[in-house]
């Protein structure tokens, strides 16, 4: 593949992705008053994150067992309102320990 073709692909990828991100942010500058729309936008982040986390988290590590242990650790810590970093780090540690035990068995 020539460098020109490759750059063509990259320009299209980056251009489309940026357009999707920038258009709503620039065009919509005033407060939306419609209660349904406001409520809809309020729930969007939770819905997006929930959908992105499950079931994807089960495939994020080298096996489902360690991923499940990591998930449980993360849910317990976030239930106790620990910070983002704490939850992320201890989920990783839980996965590490689980896979280490699995290797021993």
């Amino acid at each position: 593949m020539t460098t020109g073709t490759l750059i063509g692909y990259i320009v299209v990828m980056a251009g489309v992705t940026y357009a999707i991100r920038v258009i709503p942010l620039v065009l919509c500058q005033r407060q939306i008053t419609n209660v349904f729309v406001r409520s809809f936008l309020y729930y969007i982040p939770y819905a997006v994150l929930g959908a992105m986390t499950i079931p994807a988290i089960f495939y994020a590590t080298s096996n489902m067992v360690s991923a499940t242990v990591g998930l449980i650790a993360a849910v317990i810590l976030s239930w106790q309102r620990r910070s983002l970093i704490t939850v992320a780090v201890f989920a990783c540690v839980a996965v590490l320990i689980t896979e280490w035990i699995q290797a021993l068995i």
Partner: peptide
């Protein structure tokens, strides 16, 4: 590999820390 496997869950840990408390 084992480090990459463990890091793979980091981002989901963050997601959970955002959605679980509310």
């Amino acid at each position: 590999d084992f480090i990459r496997s463990a890091l793979g869950i980091a981002i989901y840990g963050m997601f959970l820390a955002i959605i679980v408390p509310p």
